[in-house]
Design a protein around this nucleic acid. Structure first.
Length: 599
RNA sequence: GGGGGUGUAGCUCAACUGGUUAGAGCGCUGCCCUGUCACGGCAGAGGUUACGGGUUCGAGCCCCGCCACUCCCGCCA
């Protein structure tokens, strides 16, 4: 059993040849006498023809009973289609295979949903698609996504190999490091009461590889996080994990710009302009209200802290007096926003702890707003000038502490962009890719509830050299050598130059992050130990591979680029996992269940 | 943990303000059809309106609960 050609191969040049093709019954058209069957494999479609005068009756009857998606092997002669019956929609449309032998390798049952009609299939409930993923994967869009993913993986490996990187595998049975994301624990029969954890990322191993002298490491690494899911977050996902020695930040930027350039060229035949824009964290917040700005459209934030410092509007001047800021955006042409939309924006603002969302609608030459009566002429003038206010605009304000004010307006900005898009007032080309590096993140953030500092990125991130003296005196001011790569408002990846001196790492763990010394020893002792024996300066980055492929495929859900993804609750609808296990299995693991009672 | 959306035939959807026997297209079954390619024609089968309660003379529609899927917030060092 061997095919001679795939289903996207036959052309007029093959006319007269006897061929064998194998594939799925894409569609069957039974005209009573002659029958046509389109056979499909992953490459394409070929029409086969059945003539009752040339075939034994039982064979002909079997063909007329074939159901969609049955698997068939057909041997026959390639021939020119009669004049006027050429199908220009498919690549093999000039020829057809006149069948002589047909073998039904697998008669398909009636399908739970159609896979042949792209329009219907694309609308099928995702729940059903996930349950019958093998049918879903036969759809051209899905196989296209898998192909592209494979191609991008290959391009990545080729590029990294050319750059002298070694593909090194790291363990997926790791140990629990409770800082950071929640982990999946793995019990183990041979060590009663003890657990492995699946890695959130190979972070520690890749740093150890640098100490091990590998110099340049990469891996398409599977990572696991037991956190709640999103359209762009799965409990297990793949990242392009990279680490290199004897480098600084610029080396990483160059490497990744080269990699993405290669990937875009390979996948989309697009030449990405490099170098990418580099934007300090503070600028990103000030201008876009987010640390992963979508720069494909304007609607930038403007600052009015000084203008409102002595304002008659006490909400604003009061905020400034208590150390806050006044920020505003001009949603061009959104004065027509409905009450519902303004309410939705206000709710968003409130969810960030804002008391409300001040706004001005500019309609019929008038500023319509509950607050504008408090504004003096200089304030109005400053607003008009800085925001370029015109007829039909909607101005929105946030008055709060700096970070909060920025983030509120950042969310509002994205919401406004969505509204403008649906109104046709903002269009973004699907082929536009705005890459940028966000740099100079604060090394530390403060947790008010726990009353302590925590790492903005992770505790191995090196401070900017000049800021090290500030670590214990002014932690807030210490910048980290951390960088994020962002495209179109999506965080594609991030990394940092690491700490390679055990003393600095120890200070960070124990004095800055306030992790007790014995706990540091238990969790990271081996790393600190390793760094004592000749640790090279090093740094790295990880790119979300699923997100990367999703962007290239033009989809917002990474489930569309993962062969067997999980639902928003982390279940696999096809295999019905996770699932209960036998009492014996639990006994072997010395595990006793204590489930919450249901009433 | 919280908020929003969805759930009606195998699939995609409809069903007015709560009112007759819950409809359509596709698919499926049977019959007819020798150049179709979304083949066509005729006939037919197919429903616990996700599930459990409640209100009502009467519930797909209203109320309460619950489940699944989905989007978002929290969370994701």
């Amino acid at each position: 059993m061997k095919r001679t050609h795939h289903c996207n191969e036959l052309r007029p040049a093959h006319i007269g040849q006897t061929v064998t093709i194998i594939g799925w019954v894409h569609s069957r058209r039974d005209l009573g006498g002659v029958i046509f069957v389109d056979v499909r494999d992953r490459e394409g479609r070929t029409q086969t023809v059945y003539d009752p005068n040339l075939l034994p009756k039982d064979l002909f009857d079997r063909v007329s009973a074939l159901r969609s998606e049955s698997v068939v092997q057909i041997t026959g002669t390639v021939r020119q289609r009669p004049a006027g019956t050429i199908n220009t929609k498919i690549a093999t449309g000039e020829v057809e295979v006149l069948a002589q032998q047909v073998e039904v390798l697998n008669q398909a049952a009636v399908l739970p949903f159609p896979v042949d009609d792209p329009e219907v299939a694309a609308k099928v409930n995702e729940e059903l698609r996930l349950q019958y993923r093998y049918l879903d994967l036969r759809r051209p869009e899905m196989i296209r996504n898998l192909r592209l993913r494979s191609k991008v993986a290959m391009a990545t490996r080729n590029y990294m190999d050319e750059q002298g990187f070694l593909d090194v595998e790291t363990p997926t049975l790791f140990k629990s490091t409770p800082e950071g994301a929640r982990e999946f624990l793995v019990p183990c029969r041979t060590s009663p009461g003890q657990f492995y954890a699946l890695p959130q990322s190979p972070q520690q191993f890749k740093q150890i590889l640098m100490v091990g002298g590998v110099e340049r490491y990469y891996q398409l690494a599977r990572c696991y996080r037991d956190e709640d899911l999103r359209a762009d977050r799965q409990p297990e996902f793949t990242q392009v994990d990279i680490e290199m020695s004897f480098i600084d930040r610029e080396d990483i930027y160059n490497l990744i710009e080269g990699l993405l350039k290669r990937i875009w060229k390979t996948a989309l035949n697009v030449d990405l302009p490099t170098p990418f824009l580099r934007m300090p964290f503070v600028d990103a917040l000030n201008r876009y209200g987010i640390d992963k700005p979508d720069t494909r459209f304007g609607l930038e934030l403007a600052d009015f802290t000084e203008e409102f410092r002595h304002s008659g509007f006490k909400v604003f001047s009061g905020t400034v007096a208590s150390g806050g800021v006044i920020k505003a955006i001009n949603a061009k042409g959104l004065a027509c926003a409905t009450q519902g939309q303004i309410e939705a924006m206000t709710e968003t603002a409130k969810s960030f702890g804002a008391k409300g969302l001040a706004y001005i609608k500019v309609e019929k030459g008038e500023w319509k707003s509950p607050i504008v009566k408090f504004f003096g002429a200089p304030e109005k003038e400053a607003l008009t000038k800085k925001l370029g206010i015109e007829e039909g605009d909607l101005v929105l304000f946030a008055a709060d502490q700096w970070l909060n004010a920025c983030e509120i307006l950042g969310k509002i900005r994205l919401y406004c962009a969505e509204v403008l898009k649906t109104q046709g007032k903002l269009t973004i080309s699907p082929t536009q890719f705005n890459f940028l590096w966000v740099v100079d993140f604060p090394l530390l953030s403060f947790d008010k509830e726990m009353n302590r500092w925590y790492s903005s990125h992770h505790p191995f991130t090196s401070p900017v050299e000049a800021d090290i003296p500030l670590l214990l005196t002014e932690p807030k001011k210490v910048r980290g050598q951390h960088y994020d790569i962002v495209v179109n408002g999506v965080e594609l990846g991030g990394g940092s130059i690491r700490i390679h001196q055990p003393e600095v790492q120890k200070v960070l763990f124990e004095q800055v992050l306030q992790i007790p010394a014995d706990m540091v020893q238990a969790r990271f002792g081996y790393m600190l130990e390793a760094f004592r024996y000749g640790a090279p300066p090093h740094g790295g980055i990880a790119l979300g591979f699923d997100r990367l492929v999703a962007i290239l495929c033009g989809t917002t859900s990474i489930r569309d680029v993962i062969a067997f993804p999980k639902t928003a609750k982390g279940t696999d609808l096809m295999t019905q996992s996770p699932a209960a296990v036998d009492a014996k299995q639990l006994r072997d693991l010395h595990i006793e269940l204590k489930l919450p009672k249901k009433d």
